[in-house]
């Protein structure tokens, strides 16, 4: 069995989407808590501190996932590893890439809608 930190450990296959799920919960939870504690004035439209914070957080998450995707992709090119191991690394890279795309896609509305209405 590969050590936990190895990019070939199959436990990492879903990593990108696990991160996406955590990000998603944090996004929805952050919005709800923000609206409960200090709702921005609806007249401000979408340009509020809350939207800004959520967008920034999403951007950082996306960058992290792209970085992970790159790491896994690099590992997948290593010819010394067996076929199954490289399959796993490529799969993990793909999942991270999808996670990054999904993050951008889902976060897009923060740029166009007021937060608490």
């Amino acid at each position: 069995m590969q050590p936990l930190r190895s990019p070939y450990n199959p436990i990492h296959i879903p990593l990108g989407l696990v991160l996406w799920s955590i990000w998603f919960v944090a996004l929805y939870g952050g919005l709800s808590v923000g609206c409960a504690l200090a709702p921005p004035d609806p007249a401000q439209g979408q340009w509020t501190w809350l939207n800004g914070l959520l967008a920034l957080f999403s951007l950082l998450t996306m960058v992290a996932m792209l970085g992970l995707a790159w790491l896994f992709q690099r590992a997948a090119r290593d010819q010394r590893e067996g076929q199954p191991a490289r399959f796993v690394a490529r799969l993990s890279a793909g999942v991270n890439l999808i996670g990054a795309i999904a993050t951008v896609f889902v976060a897009l509305p923060t740029l166009s809608l007021p937060p608490c209405l």
Binding site: P14, L17, W20, S21, F24, L31, C35, L91, L113, P114
Partner: peptide
């Protein structure tokens, strides 16, 4: 794998009429 995960991020689309903020609905 993608279907498996993303399907956990959709549940509120059954609740679009309960009065959740529209930005959250948009997610």
């Amino acid at each position: 794998l993608t279907t498996g995960f993303i399907s956990f991020g959709l549940w509120v689309h059954h609740m679009f009429t309960v009065g959740i903020p529209q930005l959250a609905q948009a997610f």
